[in-house]
Amino acid sequence: MYETLEILRDGPIATIWMNRPDVHNAFNEALIAELTAACRQLDADDSVRVVVLAGRGKSFSAGADLNWMRRAADASVEANLADARKLAGMLRALAELTKPTIARVQGAALGGGMGLASACDICVASTAASFATSEVKFGIIPSAISPYVLRAIGARQAGRYFQTAERISAAEAKALGLAHEVVAPEELDAKVAGIVAALMQGGPKSQAAAKDLIRAVADQPVSDAVVEDTARRIAELRATPEAKEGLAAFLDKRQAAWVPNE
């Protein structure tokens, strides 16, 4: 049972709903702890294939709760460091889930909310969505979210938005590489469902390996070590039961065992 989240299951699909609509799903200590726990719980559940992150109400997430920030302003450096580590741990737990993750962004995703959207593998946004790294307006920096936002939009674009805190429209987010898809609000769930259906065609262990491959290869020069690592990864996977089943299913012109029956 969660105080700030609602987790809904539809077979192998788990949707984590941030459920603080009255404060635009802003982070506080409880949401940070619960989202961390939910990510770890779902990652350990072999029956879960895809995780969707969504927000109840008008906004996806407005980032840090202002009351939480006010308490932090009066706290010691040590207390602030402990809080910052918990926030960073939550984002990492989401980003390093071995299952595919989709951010369903229907409205504002500001500060830490933009960090959540960036930490997910795939971001689907409504035309009503907007994004911002708004931290400098409060005299702070988008520190914990920076690895994921930089991965999504690159250092050059971050150099602008980390300093200006400008609002980024859904269309601009797609152009920047943050949002993969932008659709009308009434089409948001259908688009998410279509991507989920595509993900369900892939082998779960190969998808986890693909995520790990990206982390290993991204921003690395093509060195002997990288070439050897990529060769070793595919060689090891080819011998797995999942790979053998995938090849057999293709040759037999049938669905692989991991694809759900419709």
Rank of each mutant, 00 (worst) to 15 (best):
M200R: 15
A132V: 09
A62W: 07
D46I: 05
V259E: 10
A64S: 13
G111A: 15
K253N: 13
I13N: 06
I32F: 11
A129N: 12
T240L: 12
D46F: 01
L87R: 12
S206W: 13
A231L: 15
A225M: 02
A239S: 10
F162S: 08
D65I: 02
G63S: 06
P12K: 07
A73M: 15
G203F: 10
V226M: 15
S59Y: 06
K174I: 01
G113N: 09
N19V: 04
L97A: 06
H180T: 07
F162E: 01
C120K: 04
Q255R: 11
K253R: 14
P260S: 07
T127M: 03
G11R: 04
I13W: 03
E172K: 14
A198S: 15
G194W: 00
V217I: 15
E6F: 13
E96F: 11
Q106A: 15
R9S: 10
F131P: 13
A33L: 10
Q106H: 09
V222R: 04
P12H: 04
P12D: 14
M69H: 03
A165H: 11
I214W: 10
S134T: 10
E186C: 01
L8I: 13
R156H: 07
Q163F: 05
V105E: 04
A129P: 14
A248V: 12
A119H: 09
I145Y: 07
N25H: 00
A209I: 00
L213N: 13
G11P: 10
L42E: 08
V183T: 12
E186H: 10
D83V: 07
R104V: 00
G113A: 09
V217R: 01
E96K: 05
G89A: 00
G57L: 06
T15M: 08
R233W: 02
D189N: 11
A38E: 04
R20Y: 08
E242N: 08
L87K: 08
R40E: 15
R233K: 11
E3S: 14
V183K: 00
